[in-house]
Design a protein around this nucleic acid. Structure first.
Lengths: 113, 113
DNA sequence: CTGAATGTGTTGGCTGCCAATACATACACT
DNA sequence: AGTGTATGTATTGGCAGCCAACACATTCAG
């Protein structure tokens, strides 16, 4: 699937995969891909600017870690981030309901399928 | 809701509201708004270019009608449009499944809520 | 020492929706 | 006659947001 389709929902995805625990950028890409059964393939040019923005907004906090000689930047949710994630889930639900009801109008009451 | 969120799904919405029968531009806006329970408010700057594009693609056909002195341009689905609508519905389903499974991961099998 | 995997990061560009704007007809009200 | 509101079609410039392409560093296998 064109990952371009995440437009407008990227923040929610990033916050969601960080909910179980801290991850670094590369692992975030892998987590999104895994949790979407391979459907969503984010690129570095997509997530790094987004992660920086979310940190500036106070929704994430980051810290450099060194595994041996390698450096990794790990991101984790802040309390504000957890709160925003809840909002994003609500917004997603309302969004899919709105589009879905136009795309697939509900059958009239009593309509037997 | 920010109608900007329809980005990438506008074509499907337009094709869907035209499925029951022909409509003119203004009525299309009203139909989308009604079927989404007022959630989606498209603007003329959004739909007219889109309708022209869909007609160029052969998914819609249009005809001018005159109600008394008033002129209206009515759009209706072509066979290709009906076919594309089916594709859009499939794509929407896959899209929501992908995003949804990242945003709200399924509980592990046997997980009691 | 070459290639692939892992890892972070920036920049220019394109797609696609929207606000603003323009114009026209019909009708109600004063 | 004039003013306001609803109906109706249409265009244009701008901008948000994602991405391809690129740059660079470390580790390990062959």
């Amino acid at each position: 699937m064109r990952a371009d389709a995440v437009r407008g929902h990227l923040d929610g995805l990033l916050l969601a995969v960080l909910e179980p625990g801290p991850l670094h950028g590369y692992a975030i890409i892998a987590a999104v891909q895994h949790r979407s059964r391979g459907a969503l393939e984010l690129r570095t040019g997509t997530i790094y600017p987004a992660l920086n923005r979310l940190e500036r907004l106070g929704l994430l906090s980051s810290s450099w870690q060194s595994t041996g000689e390698r450096r990794r930047r790990c991101y984790e949710l802040t309390d504000a981030g957890r709160h925003t994630l809840a909002s994003e889930r609500t917004a997603w639900s309302e969004f899919t309901t709105a589009i879905g009801s136009v795309l697939n109008p509900a059958a009239p009451p009593g309509f037997a399928t």
